[in-house]
Design a protein around this nucleic acid. Structure first.
Lengths: 340, 340
DNA sequence: TTTTAAAATGCAAGCCTTTACATTTCTGCA
DNA sequence: TGCAGAAATGTAAAGGCTTGCATTTTAAAA
């Protein structure tokens, strides 16, 4: 039947509409530069043929794609989802399309994905965190693809970032916790290798301890990969040891929710027996039981600002500017003073 | 400085390595068809130049992209994430790359995304649910892009699907609930317009009621959009009315978790005062408090099988085959018999 | 009407790869 | 050493679109 009907091209549309390919192309790209009558003919032909422009050819001829790539560690949880959603929505307003790729927190995969998105013609890239091989940045430079770092902020880095200060945020929280009398602290951290955010958060706690005259060395740290179950196990490990902490920091809310769950299973009351602190303030944090005390990160704002910055750069040539976003402490029900 | 250095092309690599473009191309695509010595030279040139193949040109010349597009309603929650992750992992094993796009549950955006992915050269598409305008399917046919429907199963549809029977699954659950003595039922449903899964789940409950001799008309239905907060509000609305149900079904786990939360806030005990039932069995369901009774959907299996089916089609020409996956009832702590 | 500028349209080159086919270089063996 | 066949490499066309420039049509002004 219709089996081997060839895919319609610009040329087919032009023939059907009785115009040149240039006109069809303009009709698609600059509708006002075409007379209404012609436009109608062309659109009718497009509709009749079921034509769809070939992106590759278009990208090659136009040397841009109106596409921005975002490379995130994982889509499996909400941490990046919300910010990304905002990023996409804002991008859409400016006529850009977002392409997402995920890396499972593996640097090799990240490099692969960066190359893949660049080769797919991404006009710019959104990256998470600063930490990657300089070769990658060189590559991006060679390819002329601007990249914006988010979810972290480092004024020192020459890579522009729109993000927040992971270390300071965690340090603020830790300072508050210490003020409440907690001295025996533990941290369930995401893996710090290749993850500057996790590292910065840990450093923030060390810093707060030092400032308070506590030996940083005393912080019990368990590193684990992402996931509720992983958080639960890490919590079990920590509370199973001799030296039980009175406050357990978690590198992110997902781990914290896991900790909360294991606490319940172990019959440990939060916050009476132990305080649990999260990071990120994703939806999960409010829903957890008890509702989680955590550090709020303005994910939506971050996504939106990142999108604006990139559109401005691409559309108007306005250079990227480092932007520091404020985090806030959200007190809910998992943190209590010691000996209350 | 390095400002206007042009982006390196295959041709540049060829010149640098002192070979023809054909050789460079082969070096990239069929490494064993090139002598080791030449390969070294070429790879060195590629490295030195920071070359990255132009995807568009490649797609155009090769007439395939090894890319499969997935279009999902939203990335904001875990419902699609897990299945998609599995889909991607399996795809990767077969040498394909996944491209994701999301639609915010809006049919117009979905159409746009379908066109966008097709025009980007997706060799095939993964779609959620059957329900869309026939024109879209015609378009896909014209473009020669196979599409596989998931998250739903309809043997009657001529669009092949790898999924589960939403109606039957919900019906089974409802039958059990009714067996426990529940007669006053409510449903917090996702919006059923343009969502055949939500519709099927509702129908499942109606069916179960009818089978049990209950008037389907008695089911209190509140439709709401996605989100924990929305679920909470819907629950509040239902429990604020005169006729209070003894069991509240939820179209998905996210809504259910919202319901649970609001119940707690209202001082309503689950399951003593009211039973709450979810759907999907995402991670959230286990973590909720109390752990949620729900319908388990084999998301990972679905993603994996979909990926296999598509790879087989693209690589070996084996036609897609409808595949029905089994759901199971997961009893946790939010469902209890009436008058217990 | 005629003239003139503006608007609409057409022509054709160029964007970067892959690949069928042609040609050259090896390899092993007589 | 010479030769056939295999392996490696090169040549050049094709693929679909955009866009600078040239040409034609339209509209407005005279």
């Amino acid at each position: 039947m219709n089996s081997k009907r060839a895919i319609p091209t610009l040329h087919d549309v032009a023939t059907t509409a009785g115009v040149s390919t240039a006109t069809v192309s303009r009709c698609l790209n600059f509708p006002d530069r075409v007379s209404p009558r012609t436009k109608d003919k062309v659109l009718a032909a497009i509709e009749a043929l079921g034509y769809s422009p070939n992106f590759g050819a278009r990208a090659m001829a136009a040397r841009r794609t109106n596409t921005i790539g975002a490379i995130i560690p994982t889509m499996e949880n909400a941490i990046f989802a919300r910010g990304l959603q905002a990023f996409q929505e804002e991008l859409r307003l400016h006529g850009f399309t977002m392409l997402v790729a995920s890396t499972s927190y593996k640097p090799e995969i990240e490099e692969e994905q960066i190359r893949s998105l660049v080769s797919r013609g991404a006009d710019a890239l959104l990256l998470i965190g600063h930490d990657r091989r300089p070769e990658i940045y060189d590559f991006l430079e060679t390819q002329g693809v601007p990249a914006l770092v988010t979810w972290a902020f480092d004024a020192a880095s020459h890579r522009t970032s729109v993000g927040f200060d992971n270390q300071r945020a965690m340090q603020e929280m830790a300072t508050e916790v210490i003020k409440l009398g907690h001295k025996k602290l533990a941290l369930i951290s995401a893996e710090t290798a290749n993850n500057d955010r996790a590292l910065a958060r840990r450093t923030g706690i060390y810093q707060a301890m030092e400032d308070a005259g506590l030996p940083p060395h005393d912080l019990q740290v368990v590193e684990t990969s992402y996931g509720i179950v992983e958080g639960a196990n890490a919590f079990g490990e920590i509370m199973g040891r001799g030296q039980k902490p009175t406050a357990v920091f978690c590198g992110n809310d997902v781990l914290a929710v896991g900790a909360l769950r294991r606490a319940r299973e172990m019959g440990i009351s939060v916050p009476q027996d132990v305080s649990v602190i999260g990071f990120d303030d994703i939806e999960l944090a409010q829903v957890a039981y008890p509702p989680l005390t955590t550090v709020h990160v303005p994910h939506r704002e971050m996504g939106q600002k990142a999108a604006r910055a990139l559109s401005r750069l691409l559309l108007e040539g306005i250079p990227l500017e480092p932007t520091l976003l404020k985090t806030t402490l959200v007190y809910r029900n998992t943190l209590a003073p010691i000996n209350f």
